[in-house]
Design a protein around this nucleic acid. Structure first.
Length: 155
DNA sequence: CCCTGATTCGC
DNA sequence: GCGAATCAGG
């Protein structure tokens, strides 16, 4: 028994039969064992078995470029779905008002842990709804364009 | 990414 | 003759 798998007559016959059956090269290689699909394809060609009954060979093989590396085709396309800009403004580190002293036109943005004594509300002039400009920028984030929300199943 | 066969060429 | 590497595609 040959320890290196070789193309013995019987293996060639199996190969021929399976190939005519339309089995793929890799399937044949697995069936035979000890050979790769490349080996099978190579043998098929050497045997002159290549074109099958109805091969349907659309593309003709390229003569193989001498040695050039592929230029990695540049495609110009629109930049896709960059995150829309989120404005980050400086935010006051500490609040100046507590819930009792907060007025109607003062920023109600909570600062700190509500359970802590240091808890406060921002208290700056409210210019966007209940909040000052920087807190309003956080509270009223721009939403995604409608079509994107639809794509995401959020509408 | 998986897969297909085709081709080249050093061994 | 052999088949890995590499190719063009599906």
């Amino acid at each position: 028994m040959p320890r290196s798998t070789s193309w013995t007559d019987d293996r060639i016959e199996i190969l021929t039969q399976l190939w005519r059956d339309g089995r793929s090269a890799s399937a044949i290689a697995r069936e035979l064992g000890g050979v790769t699909r490349n080996a099978v394809i190579g043998k098929v060609h050497r045997l002159g078995l290549s074109g099958r009954a109805t091969p349907a060979r659309p593309g003709t093989r390229r003569p193989r470029a001498p040695k050039a590396e592929r230029p990695a085709a540049r495609s110009r396309r629109m930049p896709v779905a960059k995150p829309w800009p989120v404005v980050v403004e400086p935010v006051p580190l500490a609040g100046t008002s507590d819930v009792a002293s907060i007025g109607p036109h003062m920023c109600r943005w909570p600062i700190g842990d509500p359970r802590a004594d240091s808890f406060a509300l921002c208290g700056r002039a409210a210019v966007r709804g209940a909040y000052c400009a920087p807190h309003g920028a956080i509270a009223y984030r721009p939403t995604a364009p409608d079509h994107l929300l639809r794509l995401a199943g959020l509408r």
